[in-house]
């Protein structure tokens, strides 16, 4: 798992790394699910989502917000995302496992994905995302 928790007083701030933008988004989705459900594995439920935004930071905010929505209403813990990004349009084939109160307890409810201090930068051969989740 390539994400780390950074200091933030009220909420959860994380840093995620990926070698491509697609991998970064996919890792961010897994990081989010790990925060909410603590123990996530692999699953074979499939869902398709598409989101649009004005720029890349907005695109990740929209995508992660969609992950929260799908996960909650479909009672599905998303464990993987096959992502395609074209400009500011994203399509993702999600895989996941059914939510179980026994297995997926121990995490924290994320209320939303903030724009505050949301950054994506390219450093060496990796993309780095920093984002704050309201918990």
């Amino acid at each position: 798992m390539s994400f780390e928790e950074l200091e933030h007083t009220a909420d959860i701030r994380i840093r995620v790394r990926g070698t491509t933008l697609e991998e970064l988004f996919s890792e961010a989705a897994r990081a989010l699910m790990t925060i909410v459900y603590k123990n996530i594995n692999q699953g074979n439920i499939r869902r398709h989502v598409e989101v649009d935004a004005d720029d890349t930071p907005s695109l990740i905010r929209e995508f992660l917000s969609e992950i929260l929505f799908v996960s909650e209403v479909e009672e599905m813990v998303i464990t993987g995302a096959d992502i395609h990004i074209a400009g500011n349009h994203l399509t993702a084939n999600l895989t996941g496992e059914p939510f179980s109160t026994m297995k997926h307890c121990g995490g924290r409810e994320v209320k939303g994905v903030s724009y505050s201090d949301l950054t994506i930068r390219h450093e060496g051969d990796s993309y780095i995302l920093e984002v704050i989740f309201d918990v």
Binding site: T9, A10, D11, S114, Y115, S116, D117, I132, D134
Partner: peptide, 9 residues
């Protein structure tokens, strides 16, 4: 008061 997002808490 503490550090939040957008407005401070």
């Amino acid at each position: 008061i503490h550090w939040g997002y957008g407005f401070p808490i």
